[in-house]
C-alpha cells in the first residue's frame, strides 16, 4: 500500500475513532490502555485493509443533510408500519419493484440498499450489478421518487456522481 496523504489522514482519523470507542467501552479506566493501545492499532490496520481510504472527502454538509433526511424518513417509516399493523383492515398492497441505480459500483450501492430497508415502505431484496430489487408495502406509493431522493442524498454525502439511466 502506498503511503499517500489519504492513507495518513485515514490512519489518524480512524485510530482517533477507535481510541474513543475503547475509552467508552472501558469507561475510561486508565489501566486498560495497555491492551487498548494494541487493540486500537490492530483495529486501524484491519480497517485500512478491509476498507481502503479513498481520495474523496465525506462532505460535512452532506452528512448533516443525510442525517436529517434519515431521521425524518425513519420516523415516517416507523409510523407507516405501525399504522398498517394497528389498523383493523391493514390495507397492505405489497409487491416487488425493480429499479436501476445511478450510483457507481461500490460502498454507495450497499449503503443505499441498507438505507432503503430502514426507510418508509421499502425493503431491499436483491442487488445485482446496478439493479436493485425492492419489496414495497404499498404499490401505489411513489417508490421511484423516494429511492431517487435517498440516492441523491447518499451521492452528496460520499461525493459521488450519479449516472443517468435511460
Amino acid at each position: 500500500m502506498k503511503l499517500t496523504l489519504a492513507t495518513v489522514r485515514a490512519v489518524l482519523w480512524r485510530s482517533a475513532l477507535f481510541a474513543v470507542l475503547w475509552w467508552a467501552l472501558t469507561d475510561g479506566r486508565p489501566d486498560s490502555w495497555g491492551v487498548g493501545s494494541v487493540s486500537v492499532a490492530f483495529a486501524t490496520t484491519v480497517s485500512i485493509y478491509l476498507l481502503p481510504p479513498v481520495n474523496t472527502y465525506v462532505s460535512r454538509i452532506g452528512l448533516l443533510r443525510f442525517l436529517v433526511f434519515f431521521i425524518v424518513q425513519s420516523l415516517r417509516g416507523g409510523a407507516q408500519v405501525a399504522g398498517f399493523a394497528l389498523r383493523p383492515r391493514m390495507g397492505l398492497r405489497p409487491g416487488f419493484h425493480e429499479i436501476d441505480l445511478r450510483l457507481p459500483e461500490g460502498i454507495g450501492r450497499v449503503l443505499l440498499a441498507n438505507t432503503l430497508s430502514l426507510l418508509p415502505g421499502t425493503l431491499s431484496v436483491e442487488l445485482q450489478g446496478n439493479r436493485l430489487c425492492l419489496h414495497v408495502l404499498d404499490e401505489r406509493a411513489p417508490t421511484e421518487t423516494e429511492v431517487r431522493a435517498a440516492e441523491s442524498r447518499l451521492a452528496d454525502l460520499l461525493g459521488l456522481t450519479l449516472h443517468t439511466t435511460g
Binding site: S74, A85, L137
Partner: peptide
C-alpha cells in the same frame, strides 16, 4: 411484510 415490521418499527 414481516421484515418491514421488524426493520422499521423496532429501529424507531
Amino acid at each position: 411484510t414481516r421484515l418491514h415490521a421488524l426493520a422499521k418499527a423496532d429501529n424507531l
